[in-house]
């Protein structure tokens, strides 16, 4: 773990919605290897912070991000940086599964198509198959690739979204409470998948479930009221938190 490189480094990152500040100066470094989890009570700013890394906040009218965010040493908020390119490199999975109103195949092929990742149909088929396989969905859907993506179950939809994301070959996958709309069995499957994916991708996950963070993450950051309170190895956070607020949260006194 110690030889892992820094993927993101943030200095004094603030996020404001229509002038109202939601995050008050976050400094954090996110490592390339493994899973980083953001935890904290709802409204603490963890999801807003996650959207900083692929500049999804740009799509919200009135949202303003200040501070410095570097990915591999490159400022991703530099005016010369293309958010479209950034988002191809930093994928995102949302709270509610949001497959497109298209077939399963077209859902996965969408990203490769717009980015021109496949030279021909055979290559595209290959990308679709390998992405669905990596997302653990291939066996369930290989006979009905032409069916609509919205017809799948919630857990399958979320894995379809993950397949869709990895089809673009990102370096990082951001996950915003990806299991919150799923039942326990689908959640378990998803966690297994995240564990598997963490071998190939840098994963940053926001979760409201401390147990989930404990199970799947290598490092955990605790947010409270727009501030980063504590950031450490997950085992340290859960066994030996230094801040009393972290202590209160993980023991269930706040949140």
């Amino acid at each position: 773990m110690s030889q892992s490189k820094i993927k993101f480094s943030c200095r004094d990152v603030r996020v404001a919605y229509s002038g109202k500040e939601a995050l008050h100066g976050i400094d954090i470094e996110i490592e390339d290897q493994g899973v980083t989890a953001f935890i904290g009570p709802s409204g603490c700013g963890k999801s807003s912070f996650l959207r900083v890394f692929n500049r999804m906040n740009d799509t919200i009218p009135g949202c303003k991000v200040t501070g410095i965010v570097k990915m591999d040493g490159e400022d991703i908020y530099a005016p010369t940086l293309d958010p479209v390119l950034l988002r191809a490199r930093v994928g995102m999975v949302f709270q509610k599964p949001n497959p497109f109103p298209k077939s399963i195949y077209d859902n996965v092929a969408y990203g490769p198509r717009i980015h021109g990742l496949a030279a021909n149909k055979a290559e595209l088929d290959e990308i679709v198959e390998s992405s669905l396989t990596k997302a653990g969905l291939w066996d369930e859907v290989k006979d009905r690739l032409k069916d609509g993506g919205t017809g799948l179950s919630g857990g399958q939809q979320q894995r379809l979204v993950i397949a869709r994301t990895i089809a673009v070959s990102p370096e990082v996958i951001l996950m915003d409470e990806p299991a919150s709309a799923l039942d326990p069995i689908a959640t378990a499957k998803l966690e297994e998948l995240i564990d598997e994916l963490s071998k190939k991708f840098c994963i940053v996950i926001v979760t409201h479930s401390m147990a989930q963070a404990a199970r799947i993450s290598d490092r955990t950051a605790f947010f409270h009221m727009g501030n980063l309170i504590e950031y450490d190895q997950t085992s340290n956070i859960f066994t030996n938190p230094t801040d009393s607020r972290t202590q209160d949260y993980i023991t269930g006194r706040i949140g």
Binding site: D32, R89, L117, S169, F201
Partner: peptide
């Protein structure tokens, strides 16, 4: 893995990106 340059930063991809923005 960041040491291997991203496929999105290849020359072909950047050219394509320009067209997409146009």
């Amino acid at each position: 893995m960041s040491s291997s340059p991203s496929i999105h930063a290849s020359e072909r991809a950047l050219k394509r990106l320009k067209k997409r923005h146009a």
